[in-house]
Design a protein around this nucleic acid. Structure first.
Lengths: 208, 208, 208, 208
DNA sequence: AAGTAACCGAGACGGTACGTCACGTCTTTCG
DNA sequence: CGAAAGACGTGACGTACCGTCTCGGTTACTT
């Protein structure tokens, strides 16, 4: 969320801090009820009990607002130490699936990603606010696995980065596709199956 | 795609066949230039050299139109027999990636999927027009692999279906995420790495 | 309605005669229900059980159609010989009022007259089809009154024409205004009062 | 005219006062050029240099707008004291004729009256904004004539009202019919003739 | 009896205007 | 001086009719 306000002015009446929270909450609420395309800033302002101008003073448009509203959802992501790599993978997949099961995350995330295709600034904002926050978990997981000796330490840093990215795309992408496109629940059983395939693929020794 | 027209009437002036093609092409063109949110049906009609009413006579709205326009892109999907399962997997992933590299596919697909979250009918339309068409490739690939003896024949049909779905979600989801969210190209090298992990995960013997 | 058809061809299938009547009747019906501005030719065609093209083959547009539909109403105008000038005037005013009491006449007549202000051809059509048909009654009435000796024979033909026109404007205009603008019924009592004033004004000797 | 605005709010940006005048002027201009049926609110808005929405915020539709635009024309009506009843009648008829000679009055007035046949609210609006404003002149004229002794004071108030209404329908109706239906100018000579008949009819003693 | 020309219904077509909605900006008054 | 309220210009929406056109099929005159 970190500072939409370009410069913290000293003078005049300060901006209401509660308004921010109310607006983001109202945005998520509207996202659930209406979806991205039918969500209007006027409606969000009304739900938040705030004038439209107040909203425009803080965000540049619908996309920016929704990114911030959705990003807050990912603040709760955390990687519990389950003891084994397999369990850790299952854990993170389940957490990610839990967030994506919430309709405000589905509508919001997909829509802003779609919009970001034609908007570089938006893409950057998404990466900072949402994507990197998730990738952190993958990094942590790998570090733990290496510490436990489940994975060999990767000497080539470039290769390491590529692997991280691949894992991340596989985890996030597969869960999203299961949830949104196939419209099937990413429940525990499914997660176990997916995690098994993922783990095998990553740990099986094989020629490059 | 097949038949938006609910009933093929016998009487009256028949619908112009060329108009359909022009409209869908114009839709893809506009999708590339403007993206989903800035695409307007009036603009599409103008590009297609067609009246707005003609467009509304055939499609219920923006979403339906875009689904059909994007679905045509997937008609060219085909599974070349590359001789080995590994090569086949690489082949299909590459083909899918090639389609998703086109901006009209990116914008269009993501946006309608996002919209489909709040629209059951749209979700169904997407499944019929786009998803099933892709899943067919996975089925074919599996059948070939079994015929070659690369994969053991699956006796439990329920388990087989689950595996197919998982593979499909992994392939499509990962490619989409790589291409759209991570905004990195799904080039040949990446595809090789991904296919290797996927193949190892699927073929490694292991306890369920 | 004297020849909408520009040239009566000899060959081919002749136009359905019943269609004309059905269309004009449907027009009057629609005029009653909807009024001029909400009346659509498509709706009239549907009511008449006729294709829109059939309608356009016979009339150039809404105005022309309505003029013909309304003109038929005035065919029934007739001047009964009531024995005295006073009674004759009352009679013709009552007849005119009776026609104007019908809503299809009100909407239709006023609207086409309003349209005729910007359409010379339409004005001419109205004059031929409707106005002259009414003026005939005034002429007849005057002739009878002269024959009875109630009015002195007018020697100056120009002056005679001017008087006829004035009477006609007074009768038709006053009845229309009473009925449409004041929205009061032109009942027998009111007609008696109006006819008395009119008769006194016309017969009182006085310097020009 | 007086206040289309249902409630004069205190808060928010007030409505532009100049916009109202510009819109009504533009309406009259368009009425002259196009007539009622070809007049579009979009065109009026463009002429007035105003957004279409601004127009719809103030008026419910074309009819209401035209009534107000035409009503302003009748604000200038005034009864000059010409000294005699005959001169006063001539004066008011001439004034009314002068207004009706303006094409915006012709098209506008006739059309809204025609529309009012199917719209009670519109009829009421016309009565308030236009008709009553004219009837006032008749009342004034009668009062003056009585004061001068030209007309006997009417004891029965019901009969007085009926006479006023009759005179009003005769004056307004006849002038309208002359101007619009007969499409002849209501010039001074014609007015003199008409006023003479009217005066004789009203003042000649006669049995009821 | 066959040919054929004009009719008929149905309905798609390119248009124009509709009246509404949301946008993002602006001008007010109030706290 | 910020915030609410709400009017403003802009532009797309989806709909309704317009008047024209293409169909397949039907009549009634002509030969």
């Amino acid at each position: 969320m970190q500072s939409r306000t370009p410069a913290p002015r000293a003078t005049g009446r300060p901006r209401s801090a509660t308004a921010d929270a109310a607006i983001l909450a109202a945005t998520r609420e509207a996202l659930v009820e209406l979806g991205w395309s039918k969500l209007t800033l006027g409606d969000v302002a009304a739900r938040a009990g705030v004038a439209k101008t107040t909203l425009y003073r803080r965000w540049a448009g619908k996309n920016e607002l929704v990114v911030d509203a959705v990003a807050e959802l990912f603040d709760e992501l955390e990687l519990p130490d389950c003891g084994t790599l397999a369990a850790d993978i299952e854990g993170v997949v389940l957490q990610y699936a839990a967030i994506l099961a919430r309709p405000e995350a589905k509508s919001g995330l997909m829509s802003v990603v779609a919009e970001s295709i034609h908007d570089e600034a938006l893409r950057e904002r998404i990466r900072c606010s949402i994507v990197e926050r998730q990738k952190r978990l993958v990094l942590e997981g790998r570090a733990r696995a290496e510490a436990r000796g489940e994975l060999p330490p990767e000497s080539d840093p470039g290769e390491a980065a590529r692997t991280i990215d691949l894992i991340f795309d596989m985890v996030a992408g597969t869960v999203v596709h299961r949830t949104l496109v196939s419209a099937q629940p990413a429940d525990e059983e499914w997660v176990r199956g997916f995690a098994r395939v993922l783990l095998l693929g990553l740990t099986s020794a094989g020629p490059r």
